[in-house]
Write a protein that binds this DNA or RNA. Structure first.
Length: 208
DNA sequence: TAAATCCTCGGGAATAGTCC
DNA sequence: GGACTATTCCCGAGGATTTA
């Protein structure tokens, strides 16, 4: 089901969002839908500032909400998933969300939002928004997702890397410093080496 | 080769600006 | 006026370069 809220903004929104991210999330919605739940199907809602992909069925018990990026998925519909991969509609196992987040970072978009619901699971992709207009939670989540992406690339989060991800100027270095500190306090990331000096401070996701 | 110096980076603290 | 955010200044740490 496709629901469009604000049709006049549909084109500008869709074209402003990376095609790769949209394709991956659409394929993901189809692959992971729970066919045991009758009377509902994946729903895509397009708003002026975001697109929401809502899937019937809750998150698989083996999956953790903050470990969706870069982990091997357990598809509810493996046959469908294999077909999608065969026809290159979606990425290889485990790289789907990783590709989405990487694309989002490349374009400097707000972080992708994963929302578990009563009997469904929602993924929200936001339209471009400046750092100043992001909420504190979104900033910390962007920080965490960047740390995960860096870790999956055998790299670490630094002030510089996060500043580049958020498309911030060098003058805003201290804002990034503060954000990193808040993400550490929130328990989303941790210092790689607590014994080293402050220069070249590196950070990892909290679960490493 | 070792010491001195310079440069870059990360972070703390103070201050200014903005919004409610 | 208070809370939050952004900016500026300053300092320490460590790598890179220069010099004796």
């Amino acid at each position: 089901m496709l629901r469009v809220v604000g049709r006049e903004q549909l084109h500008s929104l869709v074209y402003s969002l990376p095609e790769i991210a949209l394709r991956e999330l659409l394929a993901n919605a189809l692959i992971h839908q729970d066919f045991s739940i009758t009377g509902s199907s994946p729903m895509i809602e397009i708003y002026a500032d975001r697109i929401e992909f809502t899937n019937p069925g809750t998150l698989l018990p083996s999956k953790r909400l903050d470990r969706l990026i870069g982990t091997t998925p357990e598809s509810r519909n493996e046959l469908l998933a294999s077909s999608f991969r065969l026809y290159r509609i979606c990425e290889e196992r485990g790289t789907g969300f990783q590709k989405v987040v990487a694309t989002i970072e490349l374009f400097g978009l707000p972080p992708v939002l994963f929302t578990p619901m009563d009997n469904a699971f929602r993924v929200t992709l936001y339209a471009p928004r400046k750092f100043a207009n992001m909420s504190q939670m979104e900033r910390i989540e962007a920080c965490y997702q960047h740390a995960v992406l860096q870790y999956l690339s055998s790299k670490t989060l630094t002030n510089t890397s996060l500043r580049e991800r958020l498309k911030l100027h060098d003058k805003q270095r201290n804002q990034v410093t503060n954000l990193i500190g808040e993400a550490v306090v929130a328990g989303r990331i941790k210092r790689k080496d607590t014994t080293s000096g402050s220069k070249f401070a590196e950070y990892l996701p909290y679960w490493v």
